[in-house]
Design a protein around this nucleic acid. Structure first.
Length: 807
DNA sequence: AGCACGCCGACT
DNA sequence: GTCGGCGTGCTC
């Protein structure tokens, strides 16, 4: 019976988000497997596109099969998606409402996404005159070139006359990097004979034969032969002409950490709490329990050592493990800790890797060479079999949620995969998200606590709050309190280091006219432009618009146009004026844009090449410098006043985290928090590092206001170039929702987004708060389906079934 | 997404 | 009368 493959095609639309059936050609019958990529003809013109086989059927009636097209070619030799990941894609499609094809592409390295080309090929009976005129005498022409040269009308006509064909090409990008190499064509004994016949002064040829003998039939790359044995290229060439060697192409692995050397480290002795956590988790590993643990441990309590030893046990059992780390923490220091313990069994998936490097790491995992995967969010899709544990460090980090389709949360998928493999998940944090902590409270997750700092010498830092409404400040911008400056001063004298954090949001420089108060707005968005001194221009952070800095007020022509605000650059300048002798390192989006810049800056600071590290949120994570004895938070409030119910939670987490940066060594640490809201509970409780009180207080607030974790939320965002179009659409959607939802559900909106216009589009949102709405996801899907027509005409509609951001 | 079919405006 | 605009609908 004819075999048929069910294929998800690479056409990301609502209407094509379903499997299409294709015949499997006889020759490929036993080759095509679920999880493989294939090239299939699609649509009227039979253009060739990529597809994923999800199922093979052989019980299709013969009458049906005659209507089917056939698979053109496989794109893989073995499936790139395991049955597990195929199932996980189902789950993702169901819960995030994203297209199946988008889910597949998210699960795989970027290079596996096909790109498409088109070309025009002359047919056999095409007259030579036309070939000369249109194709410059060649047999084909790329579509792109034909378009540029304005030849499309001619080509259309030629195609109707059947003189030329339009051919579609699916480009595979995932070519493994290959290198030229060679291996012996002769047997060992023949080589010995050859060597005996060589003249004594033919040094390179002797060397070549020696190398060949040593390789014993194995291949080596030319570059490796040169590097290791100083074998020259001409010698290899000679070997080829004389028939001693065979030239081969070898797949080479790009190892992004090839230049690092790692010395083996061994398990440290665990304290009682760490030991208890270790035992609970490894017991779940051994007993194959899909238990989720919340490992709640203060900064410096040695969570990582617990992870390492759990993984060691997992490997010992012949299983594999995934460790997720926030993108920003995936520094060489973090990687080193795992590489030093587990060596080449560790693969690292990191967004800073090139697409090729990422593919190589992925291949290494797929081939079973790596047993431990350390990576950011998308490493949750690592193609590991036989998972023994999934660890998510800094569980509360928002970077685990993808803010584009598919809008998945790595934590949810981790729990799904753990269920599949019957293995535990460990969620680690000093400041767990309220959702996670609430689940632990209800014993859905099992709680494990680490309350002691692992190294006895270090103690918790002392934290002071400075009320900026009353404090004596310094400088034009009132960025620094006298108190903080004095403390910075003493550190500089003592040759200790200081970390200063600037909450970036709402803290950028802008230009304002002192006469009329005019602020230069973005022409495309409802926001003012930000001043950038490095490029001497005004930029919009939302749409990228850039323009010159005005000399006179564009509104009233006054000359009195001045710079305001405190961007990191401005603060750096002022700090430099206050401490001319201090070496300051600035770390923000501008200085870390270039690949590897982030690590380089941190390394410099670690080597004490700077005294003060001044940066945005990104400095709060994971850095561990023993010489830092003072951490200053310049503006603790800015995130606090956002209209988002998680504002307090984020502020508390951030402040607790930066505070942990002080006093990591044997010298005591101090933290100074400058704020305009000194009485706010998030700030007060962060000062005392009192997560428990914060949790209870915040839960009360969430309960009273019907927010998570007491309620689930869903968010619909629509945008359109015309405001009345979005507004009307959203009211329509609201009406439909009201009909579908039970009266327990609460619908907020539609309301314009805080920045209503971005890039000349108007944004509105609806938020749904609910407890039990079994039909909600299905109905949200129908909303997307019903608006297909408008979506193709400029409406943008996005649905998030578990949003993290409401601003 | 990309292509074909189809129904209304300005041209040889 | 036709060439071509892009609205609509379909793709195994």
């Amino acid at each position: 019976m004819q075999k048929v493959a069910e294929v998800i095609v690479d056409v990301p639309t609502m209407q094509t988000d379903l499997p299409y059936s294709y015949l499997i050609p006889q020759a490929l019958e036993d080759k095509i497997k679920p999880g493989m990529r294939v090239i299939v003809p699609f649509g009227n013109g039979n253009r060739k596109i990529q597809g994923f086989v999800i199922e093979i059927k052989d019980n299709i009636s013969p009458t049906e099969t005659t209507l089917l097209k056939r698979i053109e070619a496989p794109m893989d030799l073995v499936p790139v998606l395991s049955p597990e990941l195929l199932e996980l894609a189902d789950e993702m499609r169901r819960t995030t409402l994203a297209f199946k094809i988008t889910c597949f592409q998210t699960m795989l390295p970027n290079v596996m996404k096909a790109s498409y080309d088109k070309k025009v090929v002359v047919r056999e009976h095409c007259p030579q005159t036309i070939i000369d005129d249109v194709f410059d005498g060649l047999s084909e022409l790329s579509w792109e070139l034909a378009e540029q040269q304005g030849k499309l009308p001619v080509i259309m006509k030629l195609r109707q006359e059947e003189l030329v064909d339009v051919v579609y090409i699916v480009n595979k990008k995932n070519r493994a990097k290959t290198a030229r190499g060679f291996k012996a064509r002769l047997s060992q004994s023949e080589l010995v004979e050859v060597k005996a016949s060589l003249k004594p002064n033919a040094k390179q040829q002797h060397l070549l034969v020696d190398v060949l003998l040593m390789l014993d039939g194995n291949a080596i790359s030319n570059s490796e032969a040169k590097e290791l044995y100083e074998l020259s290229a001409p010698a290899i060439k000679t070997g080829e002409t004389k028939g001693w060697v065979e030239i081969v192409e070898r797949e080479v692995q790009r190892d992004p950490y090839a230049n690092h050397s790692f010395k083996q480290t061994y398990a440290a002795t665990l304290n009682a709490e760490q030991q208890a956590a270790y035992e609970a988790i490894t017991q779940a590993v051994q007993e194959r329990q899909a238990q989720t643990f919340l490992l709640q441990g203060i900064t410096g309590s040695g969570k990582t050592e617990v992870y390492l030893q759990v993984i060691a046990e997992v490997l010992n059992e012949g299983k594999t493990g995934i460790v997720l780390v926030p993108e920003i923490s995936l520094t060489p220091q973090t990687v080193r800790r795992f590489k030093e313990r587990f060596g080449p069994e560790v693969a690292v998936l990191h967004s800073a890797l090139s697409v090729g490097e990422k593919y190589d790491e992925w291949r290494k995992i797929e081939r079973g060479e790596a047993k431990v995967v350390v990576g950011a969010r998308s490493a949750i899709f690592a193609p590991l079999d036989n998972l023994g544990v999934i660890i998510i460090d800094e569980e509360h980090e928002s970077s685990y949620k993808q803010e584009e389709n598919p809008r998945y949360h790595a934590r949810d998928l981790a729990i799904w995969r753990a269920n599949y493999h019957q293995c535990p998940v460990v969620l680690g944090s000093a400041t767990p998200s309220l959702e996670t902590r609430a689940r632990a409270q209800k014993n859905v997750y099992q709680s494990l606590y680490l309350t002691q700092r692992a190294s006895q010498a270090s103690s918790l830092p002392t934290t002071e709050i400075i009320d900026m409404t009353e404090a004596e400040t310094f400088g034009k911008m009132q960025t620094f309190s006298r108190h903080l400056l004095e403390k910075v001063h003493t550190r500089l004298q003592r040759k200790e280091q200081v970390v200063l954090m600037l909450n970036r949001r709402g803290y950028s420089s802008f230009v304002m006219c002192r006469d009329c108060g005019y602020v230069v707005p973005c022409p495309n968005c409802d926001i003012s432009l930000t001043l950038h001194m490095d490029s001497h221009s005004m930029k919009c952070h939302y749409c990228g618009h850039e323009e010159e800095i005005p000399n006179t007020c564009p509104d009233c022509q006054s000359q009195k146009i001045r710079y305001y605000g405190t961007g990191t650059q401005k603060v750096e300048e002022e700090l430099q004026q206050l401490f001319p002798e201090a070496r300051i390192l600035r770390m923000d989006v501008d200085t870390t844009r270039r690949k590897g810049a982030h690590e380089r800056l941190l390394e410099q600071f670690g080597n004490h090449e700077a005294d003060i590290l001044l940066g945005t949120q990104m400095i709060a994570k994971g850095l561990d410098f023993p010489n830092v004895t003072l951490v200053g938070v310049l503006n603790a409030d800015t995130a606090l006043n956002l209209p988002d119910f998680r504002a307090s939670e984020r502020t508390f987490q951030l402040l607790t985290q930066v505070s942990g940066r002080a006093g990591r060594g044997d010298k005591p640490g101090e933290v100074v928090i400058q704020t305009f809201n000194p009485e706010h509970y998030a700030i007060q409780l962060a000062q005392r590092q009192d997560y428990e009180r914060f949790f209870r207080y915040e839960m009360k607030i969430r309960h009273e206001a019907n927010y998570p974790p007491y309620y689930f939320t869903a968010q619909i965002i629509a945008s359109h170039p015309e405001e009345n179009v979005v507004a009307k659409k959203m009211y329509d959607i609201l009406l439909g929702l009201k009909e579908q939802l039970s009266d327990q559900a609460i619908v907020l909106g539609p309301t314009p987004k805080a920045i209503m216009r971005v890039n000349n589009r108007y944004f509105y949102q609806i938020v749904i708060k609910y407890k039990v709405e079994p039909n909600l996801y299905a109905y949200l899907r129908t909303i997307l389906e019903n608006n297909q027509a408008e979506i193709s005409k400029g409406l943008k509609l996005s649905v998030d079934t578990d949003p993290l951001n409401f601003v």
